[in-house]
Amino acid sequence: MKKLALYLILICAAVSFIYPFLWMAFISLKSVGDAGARGLLSSFFTLQNYKAVFMEIPIGRALLNSAIVALSTTASVIFFSSLVGYALAKLRFSGRETVFMIVLLTMMIPGQLTLIPLYTLIVRLGWIDSYPALVAPWMISAMGILIFRQTFISIPDDLIEAARMEGCGELRILTSIFWPLSKPAMVTVGIITFMNSWNEVLWPMMVVRRQEMMTMPQMITTFSVGGQSGGELGVEMAASMLLIIPILAAYAFFQKYFIDGIASTGIKG
């Protein structure tokens, strides 16, 4: 009896979390005349909404922009954050504790405080409507530094000493010994960074005006809000599906990293 109530709660919750996305997926696959009909299933499914999205807005370009921005941000965060994480965990230099304190301090600054000044900086650098505007301010993350530092500290010093004996430079030690030994940390930092960058909408809406430079969230937002979609439900939903499919695919493979990573670091914003 008690078990039954438990499962009832869980199943109701699961349905309420999944159903809206299913509805969206099915609507995106229905023809215009069919979309209004109640219920999910239709007599036939079609890709015409997806064709319409590609014809009405430069969504291919937006997908490319999103991929470029999210992948380069992720690569940069992993490389530079692990560099700093390594220095803080394994190198001895005067000022190390100060740098560590600064990393912790920066995490306490509310983003709302620096948003407008940061925007004026981008304007003065002449970076409006460019990839540097979308990537550069997010190239290193304090969260990434902390995760790498924490992981690297537990790797024994003997490995470093042995490598140094054989004449390995510190950068080689980081990339060929520490990286392979820290795959879970790298996947966690990578996934969180990629997801945040891929989903980010406020910053692109500040520094991008030209349609060719828009990333996916901004593109579908202006498409939906600007009335460009002409209220065609199926087309709007198809555009949204194109945004979430890459994240869903990653989620299918790295579910554990998504959940544990986000739960242990908190979500941005």
Binding site: A14, F17, N199, S240, I244, I247, I267
Partner: peptide, 16 residues
């Protein structure tokens, strides 16, 4: 399943 909306872009969730 419960975590699904967390990973989806806020823009999409809002439009939906």
């Amino acid at each position: 399943a419960f975590f699904l909306p967390v990973i989806i872009s806020g823009a999409v969730v809002t439009i939906l």
